[in-house]
Amino acid sequence: MSLNKRNERRLYLRSALILAAVCGLLLTEACGVRSDMQDQPRYDAYEKSDFFADGRSSRDYPEGTVARGHLEDNKAFFTGKIDNPDPNAQAATSTDANGNTVVSSFPNAVTEFPLPVTKELIDRGEDRYKIYCMVCHGQFGDGDGMVVRRGFPKPPTYHDDRLRNAPVGHFFDVITNGWGKMNSYGYQVQAADRWAIVAYIRALQLSRNPDSNLKMTSTANSNTATPAAAAKPQAPAANGATNKGGAK
């Protein structure tokens, strides 16, 4: 809650003026410059706190608490996974020429969108894809974004058989939890927006390969939140354990 330079200087000017105008009367009062209105005894977003040990005024929820409307009990919608009826189902993996492990089957991933696939959803997905993914994956998903050109490891293209055959739940899982050298985007992108991005990636794959038997089916009769309802505004820096930093 300390004053910044600018406010400080302005205060000096102002107090000098006041002093000049009503010097005698005010001299006793104005000895201490007051700034209670500029800097009120409350925290602005991201303001530094002297009270909490880590210096953050934005606190995480206490462990085990759930905000109203954020129970997230719909597993398919919030994780992209279901319990495979066959408990012994294993992901098929192989090793590529560079010695990296390649996963090519995803037994627990959902295969259908848990929300209705509409044009609005795909448009929203395009918008979000261009904010969060394009810098690495490139405009059309070829893995040639600007940041990759500056030296970030190249992601795989979306337009090969392995990722064309991957179920939608896998894409959702990659965004939510990260994958190899790619970090998780779960804390930056809301669940409904993640599905929107997945729908857009599917649309990209289809546009490059219209004859493939890709389908954009959805279990639309599910009672999951609609994109509008689930895309609730996110409180700054108060959602879960992934928040680090950002204090001011």
Partner: peptide, 27 residues
């Protein structure tokens, strides 16, 4: 300017809240 990262990649809450939001270290 050079890498073409969208404002919202880092200032995530600018569309939804009063504060524009500051990127966490994780970002």
């Amino acid at each position: 300017g050079d890498d073409g990262i969208d404002c919202r990649y880092c200032h995530q809450t600018v569309e939804t809240t009063a504060s524009a939001g500051m990127p966490s270290t994780q970002t």
